[in-house]
Design a protein around this nucleic acid. Structure first.
Lengths: 208, 208
DNA sequence: GACAAATACGAGTATTTACTTGCATTCTCG
DNA sequence: CGAGAATGCAAGTAAATACTCGTATTTGTC
């Protein structure tokens, strides 16, 4: 006897066409949210941007929040891949200055390539949900970085490494808006300044 | 002949009662916005919180944005007073470590005393307008700090001082969320960490 | 005291917008 | 093929909410 239950959750078998549509909707939502913020983004407008009707949009996402959720999952995946690519255990042995160089450059490049990501997570934040996810993403990066620190300086207690990693990532996030708003010719100098700061803080703490 | 004009702007002569009401409305709006964000804050709810009717609210603020504007003006005033009190030209001669100590402690205390301020400007930002104002407030602080740096290190070019001041204030802002979200017993350690970082960065640059 | 301006009310309106509904079309798979 | 599922549409609905309106009361000024 198929009890109707609280919310008969039959998963839809998506066709290739549908999956493409979902990506298109997320792209549209990303644009829209980056421009006007999540609260001011209307589902109808997102649908229009994606070139579909409102009804079609709700074929794939049950409500507005679920769109956000979809975006978030996509970001989590991208972010994970990014750090797996740029922060390996080998980095425990690279010289501190070089490591900072590489990581900061990579992050600057990542941000430049995905302005919407930046606008969503660091610009006018757009919802409690996004803020929460942003925190989680940042924590993930800090954890990963802390692991490398532990490999590099086994004599330090793990929680000390985590604190250092949290502080370092917070520094990077703090300076990014300055880099973005600065005149283009001043940006490199600010990035250099950030590296200097990180070196001044991390080198004595880790290698000293 | 009194041409009606585009928008006959007759300023209202507020009575003491009215001014008190306006403050009460701003207090209510501050609470409400801090809790649910500007977009989700309803004017009716703000009115209720302030203990008045929706109609009365619109006696003092022509629309929702004007409430935000009122909040912003209040913050600008408070922020200005705060820095005039805590950052005088005399500080050009106080020892660097002591100066950092004082300023950081003052900021932490300020934030603790006005959680709504923090939620508005550093939490999930709530509107383009707020984000813009936040930038201006931060720039104001950086300018003031840069002036002190110039007095302290006359041999440095002014724009170098401004960069250092911007970086320093950015660092402080970056660490504040960590301090807030950390377990209460860990907060002091993080504040200490922030001071250490600022010393490591600023001392060689200014006094070196 | 009297007049005008300011303050107060709260039911009502107009608009926005998330989401539904009914139906048409296209795909998948036996 | 053909049946059922997935996709597609666009007008429409219901709820939320910024703001108005007509009116009543209080306050400042002469």
């Amino acid at each position: 006897m198929p009890e109707p239950g609280p919310a008969e959750e039959r998963p839809v078998r998506r066709q290739a066409r549908g999956l493409k549509r979902m990506e298109a909707i997320l792209d549209a939502a990303e644009e829209e949210i980056a421009e006007v913020g999540f609260a001011n983004a209307t589902t109808n407008s997102v649908a229009a941007r994606a070139g579909i009707s409102p009804g079609s949009l709700y074929q794939f996402f049950r409500n507005k929040d679920e769109i956000l959720e979809g975006l978030v999952r996509r970001y989590e995946t991208e972010q994970g891949a990014f750090w797996r690519a740029h922060l390996t255990d080998d980095d425990a042995h690279t010289e501190m200055g070089a490591l900072i160089d590489r990581l900061v450059d990579a992050m600057v490049e990542f941000k430049a390539s995905r302005p919407a990501f930046w606008a969503l997570f660091h610009g006018s934040a757009t919802s409690d949900r996004l803020a929460e996810v942003a925190r989680d993403l940042h924590e993930g990066v800090a954890f990963r970085l802390a692991e490398v620190f532990e490999l590099r300086s086994p004599h330090l207690p793990p929680e000390r490494c985590l604190t250092l990693a949290r502080m370092a990532t917070a520094m990077v996030r703090a300076v990014m808006p300055l880099v973005v708003t600065a005149k283009p010719e001043d940006s490199p100098a600010l990035v250099e300044e950030l590296k200097t700061m990180l070196r001044a803080y991390l080198t004595p703490a880790l290698d000293g």
